[in-house]
């Protein structure tokens, strides 16, 4: 066990966990930030996507010991009132079916749009290819990403 001070969603949080604990479980079990989802545990589905210094990262493969003073952003910190343009676009396009993968999809899309504010369809498809949606809402995700790009 070791103490870590994390910079998460603009706040400072301290946890005492095994250094190998993936951020996914630090967030979910220790900090009660359950918007970051467990899907596969091997960085194949993208449900656990968070931002580390603005870059989309699979939190199931990121041990807390590797986070250091980096800025961690989770779905809960994306906006104060749930009104980030990407979140609003998701609601406008009524994207979710079961909804389980969507926070990971939104985190991937947000980081991607920061790098590429005017993406083509093909760029969206390949940027989002690491996030599985078992319900098959890919077409609406694509529409929402395009929609958000116009409002960012």
């Amino acid at each position: 066990m070791a103490q870590y001070t994390l910079h998460i969603n603009g706040a400072t949080r301290t946890v005492d966990v095994d250094p190998a604990t993936p951020m996914l479980w630090v967030l979910r079990d220790h900090l009660n930030l359950v918007g970051t989802k467990f899907g596969c545990g091997i960085a194949q589905c993208g449900a656990c996507t968070i931002h580390i210094n603005g870059v989309a990262v699979r939190s199931c493969q990121l041990p807390i010991s590797a986070v250091g003073s980096s800025k961690v952003l989770t779905i809960e910190g994306l906006s104060e009132h749930g009104d980030h343009p990407v979140q609003l676009a998701w609601i406008k396009q009524d994207v979710p079916q079961c909804g389980y993968c969507q926070s990971g999809q939104i985190m991937t899309a947000t980081a991607f749009l920061q790098q590429n504010p005017n993406p083509t369809d093909q760029e969206i498809e390949s940027a989002m290819a690491g996030n599985i949606c078992r319900c098959g809402t890919y077409l609406r995700i694509k529409k929402a990403v395009k929609d958000a790009a116009e409002n960012l």
Partner: peptide
């Protein structure tokens, strides 16, 4: 008439909603 998913806002903000998110004080895993 088309009506938006009533849980949309909770889904896109990562609110506790799914079974896997459920917790109680004193529970074990």
């Amino acid at each position: 008439t088309s009506r938006k998913n009533v849980d949309s806002k909770k889904i896109v903000t990562g609110a506790s909603l799914f079974g896997i998110d459920y917790k109680e004080e004193g529970m074990l895993y």
